[in-house]
């Protein structure tokens, strides 16, 4: 075997090992924290979430809870899992799919007054796809305000 071939082989093995290591690291990291991508309002209210640290809060935006401050950037809304509700304050641009009654995941921490101070707000949509007319018909048939499941 020539030096060059040995070099090439060494580099490739190193790349392979690095990739494998990265995969294992990602798996371990995922098991540690990311398997719980978000906490529910019930978990927050019952104190299952450590205080002072940043975490994600997921649920449905409570209908008619969205209020905008005069600066046009700061918004207030509430997140619910239908059992408990947590108030949220967020300064920034909301994603296109953000709507009252729809799913949302916010990153942030609980402030001194118990309000969740979000630094990032993501919209969570469901797995249903249909034209608007069908959605309208479905809504009328069901007569339920939020026909969206969280999971």
């Amino acid at each position: 075997m020539t030096i060059k071939a040995r070099h090439k082989r060494f580099i490739l093995i190193a790349i392979g090992l690095a990739l494998l290591g990265l995969a294992v690291m990602l798996i371990l990291n995922a098991f540690k924290s990311n398997m719980v991508f978000f906490y529910t309002p019930t978990q927050v209210v019952s104190g299952e979430v450590p205080h002072g640290t940043s975490f994600r809060l997921g649920g449905l935006v409570v209908p008619a809870s969205l209020k905008r401050q005069d600066d046009g950037l700061t918004v207030h809304f509430s997140i619910t899992d239908t059992a408990k509700t947590v108030e949220v304050i967020y300064k920034g641009i909301l994603p296109d799919l953000f709507k009252e009654g729809k799913g949302v995941v916010a990153q942030g921490k609980v402030g001194a007054n118990g309000v969740f101070e979000a630094s990032e707000v993501l919209a969570k949509h469901d797995e249903n796809y249909m034209p608007p007319e069908a959605a309208e018909a479905l809504k009328r048939a069901k007569e339920a305000p939020a026909d969206v499941q969280l999971k």
Binding site: A23, L26, I27, N34, F37, P95, L97, L122
Partner: peptide
Amino acid sequence: MWGAWWVWDARLTSELI
């Protein structure tokens, strides 16, 4: 749609693996 290019949730992480 979500408002983020990438999040470290279980689906995205396992697909990256």
